[in-house]
Amino acid sequence: MFPSRFDLVVAQTVGEAVEARADAGEGGRFLAGGQSLIPMMKMRVAFPDTLIDINRIAGLDAIERDNGHLHVGALVRHADVVASGVTFGAIASAAPWVADPLVRNRGTMCGSVAHCDPEGDWNSVLLATGADVVAHGPNGERAIPIADFIDGAFTSTLGEDELVVGLRIPVPSGRSGGAYLKLERKVGDYATVAVAFHLELDDSGAISGAGLALTSVNPINNKVGDAEALLVGQQPSAELFAEAAELAAAAAEPRDDVRGTAAWKRQVVRTYTKRGLAAAAQQAEGS
């Protein structure tokens, strides 16, 4: 298989890339790791007439902490996130479970986020931790909160002439913990069910911040706001987490498919939520 014909623009700077994208209009797409886009093009599900390759742009490959944020550049591969010593909580937990080792060597975190695959892992993680997507367009940069960035399945609110140049993820200043629990049939498969967790604790040990989001059991990555609201202000306990698990299970809208029945997937959400919150709390208490 091979893609339909396209023109390739190899951009050397962000400015060049954005200009080429604006010129290309509706038929243009950016190419970073290509681990989702190239298979889609080979299957002729996607058939852009212009690809703008951003892989040669210098300075987009850094993952670093600065001013209370974790910054992830557009060319940071999943494998770089796995290997990085500056990640935390749910991000560190999720990275090894994205795709498979070879795809992780090539695919980028920002590319996954921008792709908005409703069964993608990273958008749930970022909904749990909070994050801004940094977009560069003809008028400069703007930061888009992740919840506003995700517009639907394979759809974001990114402008046609905007490039995702990075992610800005707040690093908790106090005690915090996180986890990403993913059930998959085999390495590289989409999640059957996955849940992202993020907890922050105040000096008294009470939960001061909570994030919880579901993958693969809703039409898009689903941030469970009522479970988060329930957790905040409470002391961590098995009873509290069981209550949150009921809210998460109720928020899931799984369907029967080859990966399992809806009822079973809902039960996995319930079990994972109890386990994941306990793991996040334990990590936070030890931090």
């Binding site: 190419l31 290509g34 681990q35 070879l102 060597n105």
Partner: peptide, 19 residues
């Protein structure tokens, strides 16, 4: 289709030659 590209294994069916 695995090859090493700059030392790292990648799936060569999912990389453009131009890349």
């Amino acid at each position: 289709c695995t090859v090493l590209m700059d030392g790292k294994p990648v799936k060569a069916c999912t990389v453009l030659a131009a890349q």
